[in-house]
Design a binder for these strands. Sequence first.
DNA 1: CCGGTGTGAGACAAGAATGTCTCATATGGG
DNA 2: CCCATATGAGACATTCTTGTCTCACACCGG
Lengths: 192, 192
Amino acid sequence: MSHMGYRCLMAVDREQVLRSAAALLTRKSTATMDEVARAAGISRATLHRHFAGRDALVRALESLGIAECEAALATARTDEGPAAEAVRRLVREMEPSAGLLAFLYTENQLFEGEEQNEGWARIDAALTELFRRGQESGEFRIDLTPVWLTEALYGLLASGAWAVAEGRVARNDFTHMIVELLLGGALRREEP
Amino acid sequence: MSHMGYRCLMAVDREQVLRSAAALLTRKSTATMDEVARAAGISRATLHRHFAGRDALVRALESLGIAECEAALATARTDEGPAAEAVRRLVREMEPSAGLLAFLYTENQLFEGEEQNEGWARIDAALTELFRRGQESGEFRIDLTPVWLTEALYGLLASGAWAVAEGRVARNDFTHMIVELLLGGALRREEP
DNA sequence: CCGGTGTGAGACAAGAATGTCTCATATGGG
DNA sequence: CCCATATGAGACATTCTTGTCTCACACCGG
């Protein structure tokens, strides 16, 4: 009975399990617990030891997503420097979480129980504030609302994650593709 | 025994059922057939008379999505005029289908059976060709691949559909928000 | 060497979802 | 008016999924 626990032998990498679960559930949201376990390379029994059930699994996914988003926001220091650069730093920090976020973003059923969305509210607020700050400083156009820009960022992150996962976009281009499209759009700029 | 069939009395509006099913399944992808039926305002028995099962329902959703995309592509005449204007026309034509497309785009499990994806292949090809044409004409920048722009268009359509459905973006702004972000990006343009 | 710990495989029952059926009812056309 | 058609409600068996349990085994530390 180690009073610290968890730090023993060949324990399942909880985060790895969550990541593969997110990858699978994004692609096939009706996947069975057995399929999730297989995808993670563990048995259903072990999966069930770590996550009491499907609900608990999704909750854990949400918690992880929130934690990683807040960590990305903190690391990117979105309240410092030019907003455009802050967006670039933020997307770079969010890249490893993109697959997880794609699942959480598309699985709006999470918001039904409305237990945990206070975390998302904080994150949404931080993102919206970033875009608002960019508008105020004159960097961003004002005909696209900060709320929509936030929404679009989520959508592009999901698109990017899927495009990379299916080999349609090179992994190394992830940040560039998303940031350049979000900030600059598809149109060619006039030469300065 | 009407040899023409289908044009009888208070028959369920098949397309209406499919649309409400897409709206529900997008929000809660694990919804029951019973929930789908309720959402469509019909009984489970009737739903099952029209769609043999969940698979058949999803197939029908996919068929409808493909048909509407191809119709939108045809109406928008994406091979005519400036590419930017073509994109604008296309998004406008796709707006009514955005909810359905959001479901189909995020439900990548469809591609497992790979029966029907030839329709998507044609649509993807048309979209990619549109962006490629815009690059060739000098309208679009060339550091964002046509494949990525296609992917981003899908993602933004989905984001837009959800944002409108949840009241975060005004319905009337749908086309403008998507087209302006996709083409122009968030950065302010220099005055010409 | 041996005990503790985490895991995989499988059995098992309880529950949920599905697919199919019947019957009653309402509607509109002939 | 009557009949054909479409629907709603519900019963029902089947299948799938889940949650729990047991047992055997591998690994690591002492």
